[in-house]
Structure formats: C-alpha cells, structure tokens
Design a binder for these strands. Structure first.
Lengths: 223, 223
DNA sequence: GTGATCTAACTTGTATGGTAGTATAGCAGT
DNA sequence: ACTGCTATACTACCATACAAGTTAGATCAC
C-alpha cells in the first residue's frame, strides 16, 4: 500500500481543469472572450494562476491568446476537426489491432461491461463518459495506455463537436452498435475486423460535421 | 506580401524555446535540476516568465515539476520512447499512404531535394534538420500538415535519444537509404510499399535503444 | 455631418515581495 | 559513533504592483 502522494493540486491546475471541462462541454461557447481578471475574480484567486491556466489551454489549442488584446475560446475550425479525426483514426486503429491480439477473457468482460453502461446511460455526459472509458480500456488492453494520453489531447477538438451533436444527430443506439462491433472483433482476436470496425466508427463524425456547421455557424471559424 | 505580423515573442515564449532546444539536443542532460531563480538570473529576466516556460515544458513531458522541491529535466523512460514510436508509426504510416496517392511531379522533386541535402550534411544537427524537413514535407503533400504538429510533439522524446545515437549507432547512410525507399514508394504512388518503408524506418530506433540505455544509464529512468 | 485625435478603460506581459513546504547540514544529547 | 531535533537555505507557488499595448468612444476641428 502506497502512501498517499495525492496533495491538493495547485490553483493554476484546478482552474485549468475547470475551464477545460467548460470549453469541451461547450458551456463556454467558441468565440467567448475570457479575461484573466474576470476569471480570477470569479474564482477568488489572483490573476497569476489564471494566466498559467490560459497558457496550458492555449497549448491544447482550446483558447487563443492575443497579446494585449484578449484571450478567446477558439472557434471550431473544420479542417482542424478533420485532421484530429485523421490522427485519431490512425492511432486507434493501431491500438485496436494490438488489443485484438492481446485481449484475454477478463479484458473482454470489462469491455462488455462498458457497453452495458452505455446502454443504460440517461444523459449526454453519462454516455460520453462511458464511451471514453471504453476507448481508454482498449488502449489499456493493448498495453498502450500512454498512447491514449495523446488521443485524449487530440480528441478535445472532436469532443467539442460531439457535445453539440449527441442529442441531435447521432442516436446513442447507432454508436453503441458500432462499439459493439469493435468489441466483438477484439473478442474474436480478429485484427482486420477490429480495424474495419474502428474505421467505420471514426467515419461517423464525418457525417455529422456539415450538418453541425450549418446549424451552429457562430461556433465555427469562417477561415 | 503580408504585413509583418511578427512581433517580438514574449520572454516566456523565448525562454521556453531556448530550454526546449537545449533539452532535446541533450545539452541539458536528463536529471539536471533547473530552478526558476537560476534560469531567470542566467537570462536576466524575472522568475515569472521562466515559471511559465517551465509549465509549457512540463506539458510536453520534457521536465517534471515537483512542487516545493524543484524542476528537473525528465529522464528518458524507455516505455515512453517505445510508446512515442508506436504512435508516430501509426500516424506517419497513414500520412505516407495519403501522400502516395496525392504526390505530383513537383512534390516528388521536393522530396528528392531533401534527400540530396541529407547526403551532403556534414554535421549531426544539419542531418537531423534535413531529416525532419523530409518528414514534414511528406505531411504537407498528404495535406495533413497539422497532423505533423502532433508528430512534432511526440517526436521530442525520440529526438532526445536520436541526438545521443546519431554518431554512434546509426550511420546516416543507412537512414538515407531508408528515406530513399520511402520517397521511391511515394513517387511510384504505391501506398503499400510506402507503408512498408515507413514501418521499416520506424523500426530503426528499436535496435538503437538497448545499446543506448547500456551506454548512457544515467540518462534513463530506472523505474 | 464628418473626420481625425486624444483620452480612458480595458487587455496581456513582466517584475517583485512574501508564503508554505521540503531537504539538508549541524548541533545536542545520548 | 549514532540518533534525533533544529535552524537554515533552498524550492515552487501565489498575490500584488507596474508597464506596455490595444481599442472603443468622446471630443474637437472643420
């Protein structure tokens, strides 16, 4: 049993986490102007930790810091989302292939458990959490958990879109069916089938994007 | 002709760039203790920008900030390098396949030009710059330049190893031969050959790692 | 009315002082 | 010689003050 290395996170880290969640969940809508002083007042802290949180967010491409002008929640750039999708597909395909080769009975059971959780999810956030848990679990099975950290970063851009689209465009049932195919392929140790299933799943967002850009134009960059 | 949007970068950004280069080039060796005050004194700036540079570096996994203890150049973790390699291979394979489909005569000429540059490189840094230019060019040809930004981040971990190994382990000639195969496959619009060539190239580091860990044990994490 | 200009209210960037936590060297008591 | 406490010299972290730049609006000249 390890001694608790868990200390209270720094204020800057906490602010970063809060803002990141808010941006990904589209509570802070694209284009919104943030200001160090305003956020600092809201959280009753000084400007410095807030500033550091902004720097972190800027490095994740979630905000844009314009010197002496302001900091803004980045608008969704269609090309960026498409490139994020491309990279994510490349990584997740490779991960799924490895997982298909390494999955044992216990691992398969864990995957099926997440599928069940998705089926009974009653809210958008709940479903997306189970969704993410499944994808991460696949990475763990493949022994590439740290590869998931990369996907997690990339994914943020896509998730912003997903939070807009879950209710409207893609019914959960459809996504669960796709997930189910991935799990079955891994359970059957069929790498090729796993790859095909992942690619089909990753194609989903391609169909959503045009519709979303039409419906929420103010959240997208005109570029 | 665009008006110069280039303004002097902030001090924090400059310090970040300098330190990042120094770490990747192994001038700042793994395990070295950095301190806000020390670096600030060295560059004749205040501690705050230095602190912000540290935060950026920490997010890139190049340093580790231990609260109230110090900030240290991260030691090279074998597993992290292997995972970085895995992710990079997945992305670069996908990029190369697309490039094979899209390359026109001008693009192929540009690739061959970088090959020539590599052949006449007289220093480690010079060769690595040409190497990087070629890989980025492939991404540009594929129309996935922003995907390269992801690789660039991942690659930092691998580059730290490469700066140790260039002279000792992998002769440039061997790498150039591998690069040449990649270019030929793309020029022939043969996606499968391009994939195979990239995978072979990415396997190179696997052979170097054990030897390097043996030779420079103090730069690696015992974990 | 129209246009240029100045001012005031923002913004981010930098410097500095102080705080809390950690590690270490040295001294005290065995 | 060895153990345990204490003072001290670090560290990152946070708050505050100041500087430099941008922008929007009021004001003044025409």
């Amino acid at each position: 049993m390890k001694v608790i290395p868990q200390r209270a996170a720094s204020i800057g880290a906490q602010v970063h986490q809060q803002l990141r969640d808010a941006i990904v969940r589209a509570e802070l809508t694209p284009g919104t102007a943030l200001s160090e002083a305003e956020i600092a007042a809201r959280y009753l802290v000084s400007r410095q930790p807030v500033r550091e949180a902004f720097i972190r967010l800027a490095q994740e491409d979630l905000v844009e810091i314009r010197p002496q002008r302001g900091t803004f929640v980045k608008r969704i750039v269609m090309d960026d989302v498409l490139d994020a999708r491309f990279v994510r597909e490349a990584i997740e395909v490779a991960v799924a292939r490895e997982a298909a080769g390494k999955a044992d009975a216990a691992a398969i059971a864990r995957l099926q458990a997440t599928l069940a959780t998705q089926a009974v999810a009653t809210s958008n956030a709940e479903f997306l959490a189970a969704d993410e848990a499944m994808h991460r679990e696949i990475a763990v099975i493949a022994g590439r958990e740290s590869a998931w950290r990369v996907v997690d970063q990339i994914k943020a851009q896509m998730d912003r879109v997903r939070y807009l689209s879950y209710i409207d465009v893609s019914p959960a049932q459809r996504l669960i069916a796709q997930h189910s195919e991935i799990v079955e392929a891994i359970a059957a140790h069929d790498a090729n089938a796993a790859e095909a299933a992942v690619r089909a799943h990753m194609a989903e967002i391609l169909q959503q994007l045009p519709e979303l850009a039409r419906r929420y134009p103010e959240m997208f960059e005109g570029s």
